[in-house]
Write a protein that binds this DNA or RNA. Sequence first.
DNA 1: ACGGTGCCATCATAAGTAATGATTCTTTCT
DNA 2: AGAAAGAATCATTACTTATGATGGCACCGT
Lengths: 295, 295
Amino acid sequence: MNLPDLNVFATAARLGSVTRAAHALSTVQSNVTARIRLLERELGVQLFDRSYRGITLTPKGEQLLPYAQQMLTLAENARSAVSGPGDVRGVLRIGSLQSTASARLPEVLKAYAQRHDGVDISIVTGTSTELIDHVVKNRLDGAFVSGADAHPDLDAVTSFVEELVMISPAQYRTIRDYLKHSSVPKVLVFRIGCHYRRQLEHYLAGLGVGGLNQMEFGTIDGIIGCVAAGLGVSLLPRSVVERSARRREVRIHTLPRSERYVETQFVTHRAQVRSLALEQLTAVIQSDKTAQRRA
Amino acid sequence: MNLPDLNVFATAARLGSVTRAAHALSTVQSNVTARIRLLERELGVQLFDRSYRGITLTPKGEQLLPYAQQMLTLAENARSAVSGPGDVRGVLRIGSLQSTASARLPEVLKAYAQRHDGVDISIVTGTSTELIDHVVKNRLDGAFVSGADAHPDLDAVTSFVEELVMISPAQYRTIRDYLKHSSVPKVLVFRIGCHYRRQLEHYLAGLGVGGLNQMEFGTIDGIIGCVAAGLGVSLLPRSVVERSARRREVRIHTLPRSERYVETQFVTHRAQVRSLALEQLTAVIQSDKTAQRRA
DNA sequence: ACGGTGCCATCATAAGTAATGATTCTTTCT
DNA sequence: AGAAAGAATCATTACTTATGATGGCACCGT
């Protein structure tokens, strides 16, 4: 087992294709095949299932992948610890809530990219529960989530504090006003699992509203648009609403203090070896946070 | 950077000699030299200082070593995760208090060796503070210590609960009896830093005895012998005293409940990748503990 | 001072591994 | 059936690694 071969393995696993891995590694297809076969022979197990459409990891391959990744990041870290950072490169797989992605991430990523280009960042969005699962299962290097209820396998740092606001069609001046006019309030939420939804339910329960009529959305603008059109209300970070092109079409209701704030945390796997790129990203998040606090 | 070369590097670092590393790895000296030089060229730093007596790590080399070790244990772990454990081999560097080493370790090591031979274990003894430092600095894989005051970098599991007893020359029937006859009590202890010493001071302070006259020893039998000869008193685990050939020559005083027990813990580095051999050792320790409890 | 000893570096050569490009095999899509 | 996409195989070339012999350096004992 040696590191170059593990790198070939990990790349092929990521790209799902021998040919594409060969291109990515600037070598030829037959070589990638040979390296992988060597690994398989050495370990005595099949790592990939081959098909006409490419390759997919076998369960054994899935098992090997995290080890391979850790060894490779350790090698990277060792290199830069010993012979100076050089330019950090690699891939960071980051997850984010959609609201964070649209309102907060651009700034963070811009700051990050300015300081450290050479790192490719891929962002996937999802609900907190999904993202946390991905980080735990090592399919993401880190994620911005809400309410990471102190998961034992995760490290979390608070990255943003969001003010939540409720939005309603523009004609209602207060939330009670809206509730009065719609016997069963309609609530527009992101996909199920989103943390904001619980917050919203809790708040409305406090106002004596029980059964919610829920609609699920994939995009922020969809939600705001539908609220504007009178379809229902929603709960979103103020930063998201303010940034929307359609913000004049809805009314923004400030929430009582106790319900108002929600923390977005950046979570990473505790037991995993942290790549330099990831260290740098957390550093940027931290500095962004202090900048925010000063403002 | 590849794993075989890192293994050469780590072995050479451990043995402090190119030639001996070559023997240990069943290759030739010139090859070891070449592998190391390749690593040095690749990283652009000097890893060893060469002298006529062998080689020693440079600071850069020291930096690299823990990374190399982690990658190598990860490779081992990966291999056995994917293609079954095979036989685990390697080196475990374990630290122990001298009292634990003489009274408790033989049993543990015997149980371990029965189940998993092929692992070489080296035991070094020292005081808790020394050993903890070694584990933190990664010069030991684990250590049996007392009073590992929740060091943030260490994981600790309680491995033995020792009953401490005081021993005095045989003619004194109680501790007070001894104290009456010697205005400044002499206390025989292991090297400074030993946790038992604090315990003893605390206990004697409770009996109204202040300034202790202390003598330092390197061996258990030395202490017991000197106590027998009337030189002073000491505080030791009952298991140690009972096992001594000279136990009839001293009197054993049971301590009050509150001072009686001390826990020996097995500590390991929290952030370090754990080798399989180390996992197995902790497993043996755990099972030994439950066996002990049942007895 | 001088040969002996232990240790590392260097070098030419042999042995072994890895990369390439061309070709073949397999599976699906049209 | 033919085309397309993708992986395996293979002979060849390029490169790395291992070997054993040799040389150099710093000490040690006489």
